[in-house]
């Protein structure tokens, strides 16, 4: 897929280290898809799509390294190179779904939540953040979800998942965040015999499935056969 040049239409400051950028020209992305975003002169990185409405595609970027710092320095009207939408998407299976995120991992799950609510599904979420000032999307999630639980610091989403399951009896889990957290979500889903899907992160080089840099231990390529994998796929990685 070829790089297309798009103009940044709008920028939202989510917190001191997270911004959401909006562009046009992304053709019908699904929740879970990602974009390869090229910042001319400063690299190219994969970024999950966090919303798509009225032809405006949002992606949310946490400042962690040189390329994301360069992204944060961009202004409305600046040009970036986009390849995508790429990769697999969330199935949106289940009628009572649970989202489990850690940190910036809430980004692809926000778009999933918006779509699932539009389909009339019950949507619950447990979102873990390091500190209160790291919390993003709280207002929009509160307006959207049937229940939102936010955990901070040492208390993680896994500390509340059993209790929420007893209360809500969700039937499918979608997770994105640090891998140790997702592995524990995987264990919970397996022991509870629930379906689950995970948005997995790896260093992505080509983004086209040919270089092999992002291969998982099961031989699957995150850039092409992911980033969304279901529980069965991840058996060969976390099982």
């Amino acid at each position: 897929m070829q790089i297309q040049i798009e103009r940044i239409e709008h920028i939202v400051h989510e917190n001191e280290s997270v911004k959401t950028f909006f562009i046009r020209g992304v053709n019908d992305p699904r929740p879970g898809n990602y974009l390869m975003v090229w910042i001319p002169g400063s690299g190219q990185i994969p970024l999950s799509i966090s919303s798509f409405k009225n032809d405006l595609c949002g992606f949310t970027v946490k400042r962690v390294g040189d390329t994301t710092a360069a992204m944060h320095n961009l202004r409305v009207g600046d040009l970036i190179g986009i390849t995508g939408p790429l990769g697999t998407s969330f199935s949106i299976r289940g009628e009572r779904i649970l989202l489990v995120s850690g940190g910036i991992g809430i980004a692809p799950l926000l778009y999933l939540a918006i779509e699932a609510r539009q389909m009339g599904k019950k949507v619950y979420a447990i979102c873990g953040f390091e500190r209160a000032e790291d919390i993003i999307f709280e207002d929009v999630l509160n307006g959207l979800l049937d229940e939102l639980v936010i955990t901070l610091g040492e208390r993680t989403p896994l500390d509340v998942i059993h209790k929420l399951y007893e209360k809500r009896r969700f039937d499918h889990i979608y997770s994105c965040g640090p891998e140790p957290m997702m592995k524990r979500v995987f264990d919970f889903a397996r022991s509870s015999q629930l379906g689950a899907e995970f948005s997995v992160e790896r260093i992505i080089k080509c983004g086209m499935g040919i270089c092999g840099a992002c291969a998982l231990p099961n031989g699957m390529r995150v850039c092409k056969e992911g980033p969304v994998f279901d529980l069965e796929d991840m058996e060969g990685v976390w099982g």
Binding site: M1, Q2, I3, M36, W38, G43, Q44, I45, G81, K205, C206, G207, M208, I210, C211, A213
Partner: peptide, 23 residues
């Protein structure tokens, strides 16, 4: 580690450039 991204680009159908840098 190889070169910085973009390391592989499709210029047009069938025309691919790469500079992986032997990672």
């Amino acid at each position: 580690v190889g070169h910085e991204n973009p390391t592989v680009i499709e210029v047009s159908e069938g025309l691919i450039l790469n500079a992986m840098g032997l990672p």
